[in-house]
Amino acid sequence: MTQMIHAPLRPPWRRRLPASIAMTAALAIKILPRDNWRMRTRLTLARSVRALPAAGTDHVQDLYEAVVACQPPWWRGQIDCKERSLATVLAAALTGRRCHLVLGARTLPAAFHAWVETADGIAIGADEAGGDDHPWTPVYTTR
């Protein structure tokens, strides 16, 4: 089940600009015609930032909050965790840093989720959709 996320306060422009560009790219991928093309494109983009230096936890948390705050009003569809997580990875890359996209699942209640992980192993965005009550098990991490 998808949880509604309310946008936080407007972030400063140095975070808002890469977050807006990254969110637009993530939404452009969402409109690809076939689901396997979408996931393959997301994973390819997330893996392409491996050569960049690692981002700190505060930097990734700030970018994640900026991505959530910069969800465009012109997008009438739902913006899922996959788009928010990919946009965070891309926003970090636009600032010259990297973080990892993580895809995970749980059994009870059965669900899938995507979140971002720092190089230290700190999960950001994993607490959505009841992640505190029923923890997510990482299935795939872009390293």
Rank of each mutant, 00 (worst) to 15 (best):
I79D: 04
P72A: 02
H59Q: 10
G77S: 12
A55I: 07
G96A: 15
T41W: 05
C99K: 06
C81H: 08
P73W: 11
C81R: 11
R47C: 03
R47G: 02
L101Q: 04
A93P: 13
G56S: 08
R84Q: 15
H100V: 02
H59K: 09
Q78G: 10
L43D: 01
V49K: 02
L94P: 06
A91S: 04
C99E: 03
T107I: 12
A46N: 07
T95P: 00
Q71W: 07
L86M: 12
A66P: 03
T107W: 08
A91R: 02
K82Q: 15
R76T: 12
M39H: 04
Q61G: 11
D58E: 06
R40A: 11
G56C: 03
P73A: 14
V102M: 02
R50M: 01
A92C: 15
Q71S: 02
V102D: 06
W74L: 11
V102Y: 00
H100T: 03
R106I: 01
L63P: 06
P73D: 09
R84F: 14
T107S: 10
G77Y: 04
A92F: 01
A93R: 10
W74C: 13
A105G: 14
A54Y: 00
V49Q: 03
R106W: 00
L52D: 01
A92W: 00
L63Y: 04
G56A: 09
A91G: 03
G96S: 07
T57E: 13
R98A: 12
R84K: 04
R76Q: 10
C70V: 01
L63M: 12
A66V: 01
D80E: 12
V67I: 03
M39I: 06
K82H: 12
P53D: 02
V67K: 04
